[in-house]
Design a protein around this nucleic acid. Structure first.
Lengths: 213, 213
DNA sequence: TAGATTGTTAATCGATTAACAATC
DNA sequence: TAGATTGTTAATCGATTAACAATC
C-alpha cells in the first residue's frame, strides 16, 4: 500500500477519528456511525470526514454509514497502530519520567495502545543502569546499540535545549524515523525523518495573545 | 489596540519569531535582521514574515530591515508577554509537577519569561496544603477563590481524562480565559475562552503513520 | 546616488465545504 | 420502493508566495 502524497492535515485528523471510534466500540449496542455523527464527535465537518477516509479506500456503505469496528481496525492499520511500536525516550528528567509513567498507565488501561516506551536514555551516571517504573535507563552512548537491539523506531526528546540537536543527530544516526521533541528549540533532521514539536512554552505564549481583555 | 480578526495561523508564528529575536538580542553585535534571515531561523518564508508583522504595524525600515530589540519588544507587547501572567496548573500528578518545575527553571534562567505557574490544584488530600518545589497545592474546591485572589488568567489541565471537562468548567466559571489541556480528551469551552490541546498520544499516533517502511 | 529591503497587492496554491449522482 | 448516506466533483474559502513600487 502506497499513499504517497496525502497531506499532513489529513493525517493529523485520523487519530482523532480513531479515538472516537474506540469510544464508540466500547458500547456493544453501537454498530454503525455516519460521517455526520463522527464529525460532530471529532469536531470536523461531515464532508471532510468522508473526504479524509476516501483517500484510503471505500470504508462506508451508502445510505447506511460506517461499521464502527471495521473502520477502527482500518484506521489502526493505516496509522501503523496494528502492531507494537517501541519508542525511546531520551532525557530521564522529571518530564521524561512523567511521560514514561503516563505511557505505562495508558498501556495498562488500554491493551490496544501499541506505542511502548521501551527504554530511557540519560547522560547522568547516577541514573544509568537503574530502572524507573520498570523501564531501564541506558547511557546515551548506547543509543545506537539499544535502538537496534530493541527494534526502536520512534523517539521522544526531553533533554535540555542545548543537547536537543545532538540527541536528534544520534537518533537519526541510529535509524529512528520519527521524533517528538519537547525541547523549546528548532531542531533539524534530514529528509525522510519526521519531526513533531511539543513545545509547551510556545503554546502558552500563543494563548497569551488572546488574554487581551 | 484592537486587531480583531487576525488568523490563528499568524498568531501561532509570533512566538517563533520572538524566540529567534531573543536569541539574536543576546549577541550585542547584532542590531538588525532582515525578513529573509528571520524567516530562515524561524522556518518561514520571508514574504510571510513581512506579511505577519505588517498585520500589527510597520516595524521595519525599507532597505535596512528590522531592529532586533525593538521588534522583540513589540512582539512581546503584542503577545501580552510584557507583564507577568499567572497560570494555574490543575492536577499535581507527575506530569503536572514536571511542568511546574520546568516553568520554574525557565523563569530562573530567563527573567524575561513572564508566564508564571502560581498555584497547583489537586483533589488528593495528601497533597493539598503542601508545597511542591515552592508552589502551593490547593484543593480544586478552592479554584474560584484562588484564581481571583492570585489574579490567575490562564490554566493548564493535567488531570485524568475523566475529570478534564469538570475541571475546565470550573476554570471557566472562575473566569480563566485560556486553557492548555494535556488530557487526551476533547473538552468543550464557551465562546470567548481559548483552548489549546497538548495531546501527546495524538502526536505519537500521527507520527506512527510515517513509519510505514 | 545605488543597493537593499520593506509593505502591500496580485497570483497561486491548497484545504475545506457544498452539492449531488450513485447506491445501499 | 423510499429514505438515507456515501464517494466524488465543483465551488469556495483562506493562506502562502511572488512581484514590485516605495523608500530608507
Amino acid at each position: 500500500m502506497r499513499w504517497k502524497k496525502i497531506s499532513d492535515a489529513v493525517i493529523r485528523r485520523l487519530p482523532l477519528y480513531l479515538r472516537v471510534l474506540d469510544e464508540l466500540a466500547a458500547d456493544p449496542n453501537v454498530q454503525l456511525i455516519s460521517s455526520q455523527e463522527l464529525g460532530v464527535r471529532a469536531g470536523v465537518g461531515p464532508a471532510l470526514v468522508r473526504k479524509d477516509l476516501a483517500w484510503f479506500g471505500e470504508f462506508g456503505k451508502q445510505g447506511v454509514g460506517y461499521e464502527v469496528r471495521f473502520l477502527r481496525d482500518e484506521l489502526r492499520r493505516i496509522l501503523n497502530l496494528d502492531s507494537e511500536i517501541n519508542v525511546a525516550l531520551v532525557g530521564a528528567g522529571s518530564l521524561g519520567i512523567a511521560l514514561s509513567r503516563y505511557n505505562q498507565k495508558r498501556r495498562a488501561e488500554d491493551n490496544s495502545f501499541t506505542l511502548n516506551i521501551a527504554a530511557l536514555f540519560d547522560s547522568d551516571p547516577k541514573k544509568i543502569g537503574t530502572e524507573i517504573d520498570g523501564v531501564m535507563v541506558y547511557s546515551t552512548e548506547e543509543l545506537k546499540e539499544k535502538v537496534t537491539e530493541l527494534d526502536i523506531r520512534m523517539a521522544i526528546i526531553t533533554v535540555p535545549s542545548e543537547s536537543a540537536q545532538k540527541v536528534a543527530d544520534a537518533l537519526v544516526e541510529a535509524g529512528v524515523k520519527a521524533i517528538l521533541n519537547f525541547a523549546p528549540v528548532k531542531i533539524g533532521v534530514p529528509e525522510g525523518v519526521h519531526l513533531a514539536s511539543a513545545d509547551l512554552s510556545l503554546e502558552l505564549q500563543r494563548l497569551a495573545y488572546y488574554l487581551r481583555d
